[in-house]
Design a protein around this nucleic acid. Sequence first.
DNA 1: AGTAACTCGTACACCACTGTTCAACAAGGG
DNA 2: CCCTTGTTGAACAGTGGTGTACGAGTTACT
Lengths: 201, 201
Amino acid sequence: MTVPTSAQPLARRADAQRSIAAILKAAVNALSRDPDASVSDIAKAAGVGRVTLYGHFPNRADLVEAALAHAIDQGHAALDAVDLVGDTRQALTRLIDSSWLLVNQSRALLLAAQAVLPPSRIRDLHAGPVERVEGLVKRGQDDGAFRSDLSTSWLVGVMHSVMHTAADEINAGRLDPDQAAAFITATVLAAFTPPGRRVPA
Amino acid sequence: MTVPTSAQPLARRADAQRSIAAILKAAVNALSRDPDASVSDIAKAAGVGRVTLYGHFPNRADLVEAALAHAIDQGHAALDAVDLVGDTRQALTRLIDSSWLLVNQSRALLLAAQAVLPPSRIRDLHAGPVERVEGLVKRGQDDGAFRSDLSTSWLVGVMHSVMHTAADEINAGRLDPDQAAAFITATVLAAFTPPGRRVPA
DNA sequence: AGTAACTCGTACACCACTGTTCAACAAGGG
DNA sequence: CCCTTGTTGAACAGTGGTGTACGAGTTACT
């Protein structure tokens, strides 16, 4: 008990920390491939006994939640590098370029989470990323670059779902992965254009 | 065996036909609520013994497939009433008005199907409805109402996914169901507008 | 009226997964 | 160096579903 001054992350042994990291990584990986991956599968992929896993995560739901949180944190951090100042449309384009692959790769993981966690919990976990996008969209609405006749959350939702569409089209073999980003931005920018204004070419 | 001239739907007894109809209806209903509904649940809802159900559908996958096919047929038939001639944008608006509720209601059912059937099978089942939408979109591209810098299938996918977005937003409490159709059409028409052209107000 | 088709409930075998227990062993930390 | 914390596999109980078998009863077609 070396000075547990307060409710800290609870200093585990170096040993355990390694295990947890491995499990988290394996979980994200496995669940991204197959949302129905079993706890055994994940433990195996992590190079860890199933019992060990249960030692750190009480049940499957907690594990999935941790995995999702982990993936979101990673993505969120990666997007910190994106420059969101300057022309709003260009900023959105940059954000889409960096985001969409992440969104795509985490689709199955998200599905796994939806099967186990209440919608509210999932929304909470996404609060960070959503806030970032929402802020940008709102700025665009304020400066007149984006339409204001539709709500901010709607536009954010549309952007999100267009990215999913890209993923679908790709693995249906109808879209070249290299073109995906261009298709998405072209679509989203048009959808966001205020009525009466010309769609950017 | 009243003249089984060839491989016909195999004339079952009136008895059995009623059962099958009830099962199909119950399956669509139950799976639309909960994609994980068990065979027992469905049988119960149909007012039929589980064994009877298995007598008509060899396994869960076949049942789900039949349910999806049934729902799609119904929807497809309902949309026959929609007038698709005349101004392309207006026709699309009419189609969305009539489609989106159907799409919305069948979301869970579709999810159930995706869990059990290969993507190719699902796409085949959707061939009818997709063809209708694709035809209209293609016409719009040909007559210049819709953009041609993005592929037809992409635009169809976008339209489809925007409808799903509406469903999400509604049951997240962020969108008034009465506004849904308007939001969808406003978004889709903007997204479909050719670059350089003004977004319709 | 008779026969084949259909239905029903119960019961069973089976399977995959979850979560727990145990007892022995390994390794980090002070 | 010793004690605590972790790790391990095997074994077990529990759960909830799927699909099958059976035997008796019912209902439609001719």
